[in-house]
Design a protein around this nucleic acid. Structure first.
Lengths: 87, 87
DNA sequence: ATAATATTTAGACATTTGACTAAATATATA
DNA sequence: TATATATTTAGTCAAATGTCTAAATATTAT
C-alpha cells in the first residue's frame, strides 16, 4: 500500500499511467513524451513496476509497458471507506 | 490534486484519516495515539488541512479535527478511469 | 496577573527523492 | 564481428520530507 501511494505521488508517474490508459508504450516512446532524461523516466517506470501499477514485457530490443489495474482496485477499497462516512 | 496525493503519501497521515473516520478528535488526542512528537503531528495535520482532507475547528483551547470527504470524491474520479479500462 | 494547558511556529538535521551524466547491458543489423 | 539502438544501472547532487527541541501564541483556571 505504501509503495502504491508513493508511486502515485509524482505528476510524471501519474501522467505515464494516464498515457498507458490509451495504449501500451515502449520505454522509448514514453521518454519522447517528456522533457526528462531517459534514465529518469526509467527510474519512474521502475517505481511504477514496484508498485505493480504497470507491467513490463520485453519484445526484442524494446520493453513494452502496460497498465495493471488490479492494484487500483485495492486503492479504491481504501478510499471507499471514506465515501461511506455519514456527515 | 498534487497536494492530495502528497498528503496521502505518508502512513501517519493515512492513519490519522482512518482515526477521524471513527470520530472527530483534538490535536492532542491525535498526538496521544502516536509515538511522534506534538509538533510533528501538528505538521502532518497542517498538510492534511492544506489538501482539504480534514477541517480544523477551534473550540476553546482545543482544536477539533474532522474529515472532509469531498476531496475523496475527486480522487476517486481519477481512479475510476483506470477501472473502466478494457483488458 | 500568573500559571497551566493546548497547539502551532521556527529552526536544525538526517533521510529520501527526482533530476542529471556516464557507463553497462542486451538486442538487432550491416 | 563490429556498430547502432533501446533501456537500465551507478553515482552525484540539490531540493523536499519527516523528525526533533525550543520558543511563541492562545485559552482557561487560580
Amino acid at each position: 500500500m505504501n509503495i502504491v501511494f508513493k508511486a502515485l505521488n509524482d505528476p510524471t508517474r501519474r501522467m505515464i499511467l494516464e498515457m498507458l490508459l490509451k495504449k501500451d508504450l515502449t520505454a522509448g516512446e514514453i521518454v519522447e513524451k517528456f522533457k526528462i532524461s531517459g534514465p529518469s523516466i526509467s527510474h519512474h517506470l521502475d517505481l511504477l513496476k514496484q508498485a505493480k501499477l504497470v507491467v513490463a514485457e520485453k519484445e526484442g530490443q524494446f520493453i513494452y509497458y502496460s497498465l495493471n489495474t488490479t492494484v487500483v482496485d485495492e486503492i479504491m477499497k481504501w478510499f471507499i471507506q471514506f465515501k461511506s462516512k455519514k456527515n
